[in-house]
Amino acid sequence: MKTTSNLEKVLAAGHFAATGEVGPPRGTDAEAVRKKAGHLVGKVDAVNITDNQTAMVRMSSWAASLIVKQMGLEPNYQMVCRDRNRLAMQSDILGAYALGLNTMLCLSGDHPRFGDHPMAANVHDIDSIQLVAMVRRMCDEGLFQGGAEISNPPKMFIGAAANPFGDPQELRVLRLAKKIAAGADFVQTQCIYDMKRFKEFMHQAHDMGLTEKCYILAGVTPLKSGGMAKYMATKVPGMTVPDEIVKRIAGAPKEAQAEEGIKLCVEQIAEMREIPGVAGIHLMAIEWEHRAPEILERAGLLPRPQV
């Protein structure tokens, strides 16, 4: 075991992992974080705390992570390359680790154009793969990116994201390989609706031996309504939603669409468990955290293992 991360322990013990996600509020209300995260206590192995997701200003990821940590839930501290240069990133990592955070996720971040500060400088001092490599070196070699020694280096369980569906299709697994080569311990994928393409992606990753080197958690997001299914299908960059899924959700009676979405999500999780190399799922129940326990329960993922 390289770290004290609960997620690492669960995965290392061979359990099928389950992680959740909470977006911090656009304000100072710690109670809002507790309320959302409260639904997930004891139900997931770690909960992703997003970092200014969709380029909208929110309570900082490390602060919300600490609030969650105090609730006995393990935060997966997200960090994007959009908002900070390498000085700020490294100092945040030191501070986060000093306060007990031990699991983090390295991301590029959505472009500022999509958020509420499209006029902001778009930093990208380093990219997400370089961020993974930087954290790896901080942890393993005890060195800052600039080369100086760190006193009491952090020990982070390092995550990265992968999108099996963006273009060019041929690069999807190759880029995953680069993230793993850079030092990612685990990978969480973009939410998956196109199971056929995801299976091809995993098959390729498995063949390349990537699933031996890194834990891959498949992303799932329950569709709350036909409207949401259509939105995900057409408006989200790099997302594929097959027609039959849109039809299935949108075709259900209005009052039954949410239940149909949950049913689909549970089926997807069952299917994912059977795919070689899938080490767990990452459940992103967007603004639907209270329904997460039910999904996990019905998917047979509760109770979570105590390790």
């Binding site: 154009r113 273009d167 060019p168």
Partner: peptide, 28 residues
């Protein structure tokens, strides 16, 4: 758009950048 040295990011679709369909994805 994100000056990524080890791209592409997840937003590349059909050769175009997520910020604008008029912008080519550099990594494509």
């Amino acid at each position: 758009s994100k000056r990524i040295f080890n791209g592409p990011c997840g937003g590349s679709t059909k050769g175009k950048c997520e910020i604008d369909p008029g912008v080519d994805c550099a990594w494509q």
